[in-house]
Nucleic acid binder design. Structure first.
Length: 569
DNA sequence: CTCGGAAACT
DNA sequence: AGTTTCCGAG
């Protein structure tokens, strides 16, 4: 079913008046459209509808409306299946902010607005907050959107651990790809997927790569097509909210590697594959592992993007039947497979890896864990593969000692180019890069990093409260981890069995070392109301335990909020 | 700028 | 559920 969402055209000229927020079924506009509902020959329908859809799209563009297609339509997928989060929020089929952010990050033309941060994997900088907000607002038909509001939305991701803030860097956030993508499909090499301009391999040194499906060439605000994402997976955030309601905010640590996630994912996907994958659900079962066909790293324009770029141009809008990478592409030897969350892999289910590749990956992961604040849990367990603790090769700009992170200061708001309505005017040409001052920001990495200590304390507390938690996200444990890498405990029979027990054992043994010193803090923590303790665990800073205003938030009393808003509108 | 509570909105 | 809107506090 198609829905017309009156909205500003993504890249249209200046927004004049906002059409009433009505939803118009395409059927009304186009009675001849056939709908798959209740019909069986979806292919036929899809074929026929495609034409009509094209036509409608044209109409829609004129009207300044965006069309969103539901997966059941059987036609081309406008948004990734998971974007609709059908499992967790049946009614929600709107693009989510983080999807949107990813979209922007993938489009070269928005580099001047938002871009991956150099040197930090998964980290991105909003170079032009106002512009990003504007784009977001346009996408969501919220003309009043501004960075303040947008950033509030982003902050909501902290607890969900989709994002976290890079402290000390303005407008800089970081995706928790650890949770979202990386651990799941480290070696995926999807051939014939499209180009993602701002993309690059997950980790600088990794030859492993995966491809983010191509975006529509027209608009990243996707008014039209964010691209062919895998239809199947991505219960991503959905998992948190859906089945994992209980653990949602309460036990966020579980998100990261619990076998439960795996199972959940499997169940989830198997149950939805029929719908989401449009009839190719059967593919999900067979993770054919093939032998390598690697390309050399370094061909990627942006080594800091978690996404690899494909040398091949996308195949346009033709529908590739999406499959569920979470299932079909996940090598079964991965005993560790956390939430099949954000796994934007497109359909041509062809990926490969080999031991060499694995080694690369693991090394890279090691680097990532340390340098990029990923969780050590991102280490998959590979039988017989031991990763030497610290032998990461790094790119020149990242080759600083582990204890020190060198980063150019973010282009501050003042530094950044004031592009007036760049959207309309600014051609894709040289986004005048803000002249980066010669200053170099030197961050002490581990020991002074308050996160580490606090985190450790919280880890301790957690294990007390919740018992041995298999799926902790122990980002900041990296220090310990690398100082004294635990002997990896490889599950004995991992192939074909997402074993959990061995994993947990390994997990535990890994997590044990060096937590004593934090006992005091732990008690302090224990005194804190549970709710407060939950917060900040992940993105914690020095002030993590200070009883901020939080709990005793000011009571502003209820009251119609909309009035004021309506007033100034 | 950033954080996060609260309430409203979709 | 996922924001959007507002806002006080750090």
């Amino acid at each position: 079913m198609w829905v017309l969402r009156p909205c500003h055209p993504p890249w249209g000229t200046e927004s004049v008046a906002l059409p009433p927020p009505a939803r118009i079924s395409l059927r009304q506009l186009h009675p001849s459209l056939l709908f798959a509902e209740g019909l069986t020959d979806t292919k036929l329908l899809a074929a026929r509808n495609r034409k009509l859809i094209e036509e409608l799209r044209r109409v829609k563009m004129k009207a300044g409306c965006s069309i969103v297609e539901k997966p059941e339509g059987g036609g081309g997928y406008q948004f990734p299946d998971w974007a609709y989060k059908t499992e967790s929020s049946p009614g929600s089929r709107q693009i989510q902010l983080w999807h949107f952010i990813l979209e922007l990050l993938q489009k070269e033309e928005f580099r001047h607005v938002i871009a991956w941060q150099q040197g930090e994997y998964g980290e991105f900088v909003i170079k032009d907050p106002d512009e990003v907000a504007r784009l977001w607002g346009r996408r969501k038909c919220k003309p009043q959107m501004n960075y303040d509001k947008l950033s509030r939305a982003l902050r909501y991701y902290y607890n969900k651990r989709i994002l976290h803030k890079t402290k000390g860097k303005r407008f800089t956030y970081k995706f928790n790809f650890n949770k979202l993508v990386m651990p799941n499909y480290p070696f995926i090499n999807i051939r014939s997927s499209g180009v993602v301009p701002q993309s690059a391999p997950p980790v600088p040194t990794a030859s492993s790569r995966f491809h983010f499906p191509p975006l529509d060439t027209h608009s990243p605000t996707g008014d039209v097509q964010p691209g062919r994402f895998s239809a199947g997976s991505l219960a991503a955030s959905g998992q948190e909210s859906g089945n994992g309601a209980e653990r949602k905010a309460e036990l966020p640590e579980l998100d990261d590697g619990s076998a439960a996630d795996w199972r959940r994912g499997v169940d989830l996907l198997s149950s939805r594959s029929a719908v989401g994958a449009g009839g190719i659900g059967h593919q999900k079962r067979k993770p054919d592992i093939m032998l390598p066909l690697f390309t050399r790293p370094g061909m990627y324009p942006d080594p800091h993007s978690p996404f690899a770029v494909s040398p091949l141009p996308g195949r346009g809008g033709v529908l590739n039947v999406p499959i569920s990478p979470a299932l079909s592409l996940t090598p079964t030897i991965f005993s560790y497979s956390p939430s099949p969350g954000l796994s934007p892999f497109a359909g041509s289910g062809c990926f490969s890896f080999n031991p060499e590749e694995m080694k690369h990956y693991l090394h890279s992961q090691a680097c990532s864990v340390f340098n990029y604040h990923l969780s050590p849990r991102t280490f998959p367990r590979y039988p017989g593969l031991v990763v030497p603790p610290l032998q990461c090769q790094m790119h020149p700009e990242e080759s600083a000692q582990f204890s020190i992170k060198l980063q150019p200061p973010p282009a501050g708001r003042k530094n950044r180019e004031r592009v007036e309505s760049s959207e309309e005017s600014a051609p894709v040409t040289a986004p005048p890069v803000a002249p980066v001052p010669p200053r170099i920001k030197v961050e002490p990495a581990s020991d002074k990093d308050p996160e580490s200590l606090g985190q450790l304390a919280r880890e301790e507390e957690r294990s007390q409260e919740e018992g041995p938690v298999p799926g902790r996200t122990t980002e900041e444990e990296k220090g310990t981890l690398f100082a004294r890498p635990a002997v990896p405990v490889w599950p004995s029979a991992p192939v074909g069995t997402p074993s959990e027990e061995p994993l947990e054992v390994a997990e535990d043994s890994e997590d044990r070392p060096g937590r004593e010193p934090n006992a005091p803090e732990k008690k302090e923590d224990a005194l804190m109301p549970p709710k407060l303790r939950l917060k900040r665990r992940w993105n914690d800073g020095p002030g993590a335990h200070q009883p901020s205003k939080n709990g005793a938030a000011l009571w502003r009393g209820p009251g119609p909020r909309g009035l004021a808003a309506a007033a100034d509108a």
